[in-house]
Write a protein that binds this DNA or RNA. Structure first.
Length: 700
DNA sequence: CGCACGAGAATTTTT
DNA sequence: TTCTCGTGCG
């Protein structure tokens, strides 16, 4: 069977078929990079006869992996199932489960989520008598994460005392993880890299397995992830990374934009292919995006841009009037304006799930929720409190975690207390102490403690033990959960202590959890509880389905998605960009890239809003329009300069006097290419020589 | 042990 | 504004 590449353009075809040396694909927003990756995998399998189980494809989210598998399936059928496809974390976990004997943990290790990590550190900070106001546990969490993403940790070196008593905190934290038999997110990757680095035969083994590696969203990988790829790939050159430096928005959590900028230095004989034809947005939306991002200096390609080619010429004719800016009095007015527009769109039969409201911070979702509720428009808040970190879900999972990993102290605490069953901190501590001094697991310790106790305490412990036994007695995970509910009377407890509405919601969530478990049960023959729990911690609400609702989410969560209509809200100085980012050029540029990501999510319609005042922590504050609004203002029809600019750029010649939003007056030195994509060297009166795209200039 | 209450803090983005 | 944490009482 051969793969049909006729639906791909030349650039895309080149990217698919080039497999000789390391390949860097710079793929602008909406240029069909997923299509390229899928076709490339199909090409590797069908044309180059590579076994699907020897292909590794790394994606940024589980959702992306799932989608890719589905689309790949459509081309090559169920061979798609055998491809290693997932996030760095899920792939590393899969490796680590197999290589558990090479780890400092016991076989059935658990995974600690971010919340539990923080509370563990809170306890440690308290135990070490550190002033938690002066040195917030969050700070330590962040530092630990940083350290674990360095080669020092991978190479098992001790950390420096970065901040007050860091070494002590770190040591205590590691001890805690070891005692509870858990690893954190960072460990998943660091341990894998450590194993690959130190164990030659294992490295060769996996190098042999992964005969071709593909990586999506490469601009958001960090150094350790790069090492992972490097070690797996060896010198084979059988690797293809895809990304867009203009969409790098995770620098704050250690993403290394240099990974993509320096790819050709990290690998030998790198071939670079750029995808520059945008298939997503109308020309004016694209123009706005290009105009905005042209204000950034740190870009791989000042010469690279998304552009529209012949395919979209028809769009050019009616490709304007799709952008609007709305000025609002406050966030309530903003919500009304946005929802008014949403109603109009719905009347025009735009599907609800083709509409997204985007904002910088999660806190901004509230006013939109209120307004959408009022008008009975179904919506879904993506992100925020993820499904699996909701209280009721964590409660139920605690029971499962405890029986899965009977060293998980937090699970014990949580299960023992929720719902309340007469077991308090004192007894729990006794159990933990017994476990640690007798080197047994918590379940054994629980049993022993029960035997020592008398009266009410003994009875309470007995009943707790019975509950756990009931759970273990069930085979299917869905049945285990039902056993928890039944044995603890969890629903009754909710109804008793929560408001009606709240209780109903939570019970509903639990139903959803049971469904998820049932689906998992169906798909895996051996009811693997560890696997199920891993899924729950690795899955965030970004992976949830949106169905027939309008989507509300942060700009970060919007990455990789597209919508018919997009509302970019809260474009105010200090909010977007955030104040703290405004002082530092690198951070400011990341904010601008974030805005660029937002704009390029829109296919047909784009609405910007900003307010004059906004409630911040219960205080009303004045706000002014974001600099980003200024930067794209002249791309919007209502403002006088209109889109003539884009027409005029085709007339550009050397010595033309021009004006630029940021640099002011200048004169063109030379022009390369033509039309929107033309690259020009401009000498500015104030700013000196700059290379830029013609479209970011106005002719004077 | 477990609840209720009050003070105080925190607010960026997430695999 | 909203959540978290600590304290004190039944």
């Amino acid at each position: 069977m051969s793969i049909n590449l006729s639906s791909l353009n030349k650039q895309q075809q080149d990217a698919v078929t080039y497999c000789d040396t390391p390949l860097l694909v710079i793929a602008g927003a909406g240029t069909g990079k997923t299509k390229v990756i899928i076709h490339k995998i199909a090409y590797l399998i069908e044309e180059l006869q590579i076994d699907p189980k020897n292909i590794l494809s790394v994606t940024f989210t589980n959702k992306a992996a799932k989608e890719m598998k589905l689309r790949l399936n459509a081309i090559i059928g169920n061979k798609a199932e055998q491809v290693w496809m997932g996030t760095f974390h899920s792939i590393c976990l899969r490796i680590l489960r197999k290589e558990a004997h090479n780890l400092p943990l016991k076989k059935g290790f658990g995974i600690i989520d971010q919340d539990d990590r923080l509370s563990a550190l809170k306890n440690i900070v308290k135990e070490l008598n550190i002033d938690h106001k002066k040195y917030p546990p969050k700070q330590y969490l962040w530092m630990i994460s940083n350290f674990k993403n360095s080669m020092d940790y991978v190479e098992n070196k001790d950390p420096d005392d970065f901040i007050h008593k860091f070494t002590d905190v770190f040591t205590a934290y590691q001890k805690y993880l070891e005692f509870t038999n858990m690893m954190d997110f960072d460990d998943m990757i660091a341990y894998t890299v450590r194993i690959l680095l130190t164990n030659d035969s294992l490295r060769k083994f996996y190098q042999n397995i992964f005969q071709y590696i593909l990586v999506d969203e490469y601009q958001d990988t960090n150094y350790i992830q790069f090492m992972f790829l490097k070690l797996l790939n060896g010198d084979t050159g059988k690797i293809c990374v895809v990304g867009d430096d203009d969409q790098s928005i995770y620098g704050w959590r250690g993403a290394e934009i240099r990974n993509i900028l320096d790819f050709d230095k990290h690998f030998k004989n790198v071939k670079t292919i750029k995808l520059t034809v945008n298939y997503r947005s109308t020309p004016d939306i694209l123009f706005a995006a290009n105009t905005l991002i042209a204000n950034n200096n740190f870009r791989k390609g000042k010469e690279l841009t998304t552009a529209f080619g012949k395919e979209q010429e028809s769009l050019l004719k009616n490709g304007t009037g799709n952008i609007a800016i709305g000025e609002c009095h406050d966030e309530i007015h903003e919500a009304k304006m946005v929802v008014d527009n949403i109603e109009d769109l719905l009347k025009e039969n735009v599907a609800p799930n083709e509409i997204a409201v985007l904002y910088r911070t999660n806190a901004q979702s509230r006013s939109f929720e209120v307004e959408l509720n009022k008008r009975n428009i179904p919506y879904k808040v993506i992100g925020g409190v993820s499904f699996y970190s909701r209280r009721e879900i964590k409660d139920i999972l605690a029971y499962l975690k405890l029986i899965d990993n009977p060293y998980d102290v937090d699970a014990l605490k949580r299960a023992a207390k929720n719902p309340p069953k007469g077991i308090g901190n004192v007894i729990i501590q006794k159990i933990i102490d017994y476990a640690s001094s007798n080197a047994v697991d918590l379940l054994e310790a629980l049993n022993a403690t029960q035997n020592f106790s008398k009266g009410k305490t003994a009875r309470c412990l007995q009943s707790f033990e019975n509950t756990l036994n009931n759970i273990m007695g069930e085979e299917k995970i869905a049945d285990k959960i039902k056993a928890i509910l039944k044995s603890t009377g969890y629903n009754t407890y909710l109804k008793q202590f929560e408001e009606q509405n709240e209780a109903a919601k939570r019970i509903n969530n639990i139903e959803e959890l049971i469904n998820a478990a049932a689906i998992f049960d169906e798909n895996s023959s051996d009811y693997d509880l560890s696997d199920f729990l891993a899924t729950t911690t690795l899955t965030t609400s970004a992976d949830e389905e949106t169905e027939k609702s309008v989507s509300l989410m942060t700009l970060h969560s919007a990455k990789g998605l597209e919508f018919h209509s997009v509302f970019l809200t809260g474009l105010e100085e200090g909010l977007f960009p955030l104040f703290r980012a405004m002082e530092n050029e690198m951070e400011l540029e990341e904010e601008r890239r974030l805005c660029y990501v937002g704009i390029t999510r829109a296919k047909k319609k784009l609405f910007f809003t900003y307010t004059n005042t906004r409630m911040v922590y219960g205080k009303r504050q004045f706000s002014s329009p974001s600099m980003f609004v200024e930067e794209i203002k002249h791309c919007i029809p209502s403002s006088e300069s209109d889109n003539e600019v884009s027409q005029n750029t085709s007339e550009l010649k050397a010595n033309t006097k021009v004006f630029h939003q940021k640099y002011g007056d200048g004169i063109i030195l030379n022009v390369k290419g033509n039309g929107e994509k033309a690259k020009v060297d401009v000498f500015f009166r104030e700013a000196g020589l700059k290379k830029m795209l013609a479209e970011s200039l106005e002719i004077l």
